[in-house]
């Protein structure tokens, strides 16, 4: 069967990196896309389950970056961009090395933080979005909770927590 608890990832080994200084926050480039675990889980239809949260709501990082941030596999982190913020797991990227880049599979988690800007060519900017990543103790939300929390389509009016913030201006200046 194709069910997995969470995608298999390499173990993080300690790097003797003279320049590696522990930091609380890293400025990174956010990439999104698909991988086989996310694809299998999504199209099988298991999106309500914990498996999807691990397959899709995980930031894959270069192990050096992980060392700097002081996180290990399946720790939690908060990723922020100009478009929003979301709590995800972190894990050792199978595609490393890619220092300074994080990869989050497409899905409701990545959606919160990617840019809807199409520059008049229909396709949002899913890749190459400047982001920051910090360690956190918050738990990544399951899909249904995340959708309810982010979009608040059926929430009562008194609950006004909003993960998306103000709608960004079209004339963004960070490029």
């Amino acid at each position: 069967m194709t069910y997995v608890d969470k995608p298999p990832v390499p173990n993080v080994v300690k790097f003797d990196e003279p320049n590696a200084k522990k930091r609380n926050k890293l400025e990174v480039m956010l990439n999104t896309g698909s991988d086989i675990y996310q694809g299998a889980c999504k199209k099988r239809g298991s999106t309500l389950k914990d498996e999807y949260r691990h397959a899709s709501g995980t930031a894959y990082m270069d192990p050096r970056d992980m060392a700097r941030l002081g996180v290990k596999n399946w720790d939690k982190a908060i990723v922020k961009t100009a478009w929003g913020e979301v709590v995800v797991f972190v894990a050792h990227s199978r595609d490393a090395p890619h220092e300074g880049q994080i990869f989050i599979c497409k899905g409701p988690w990545a959606n919160v933080i990617v840019s809807p800007e199409t520059y008049c060519c229909c396709d949002p900017t899913y890749k190459g979005v400047p982001a920051s990543i910090e360690k956190t103790d918050e738990e990544p939300l399951l899909m249904a909770d995340l959708m309810a929390e982010v979009y608040q389509k059926y929430k009562k009016a008194e609950d006004d927590s909003n993960k998306l913030g103000k709608k960004p201006d079209n004339n963004i200046d960070w490029y």
């Binding site: 999106t47 478009w83 959606n111 949002p124 709608k167």
Partner: peptide, 16 residues
């Protein structure tokens, strides 16, 4: 299709 899973939230928020 699944816009909930694949559209940026900046677009999806109007679906609410």
């Amino acid at each position: 299709a699944d816009p909930g899973a694949h559209f940026p939230s900046g677009a999806n928020r109007h679906l609410a």
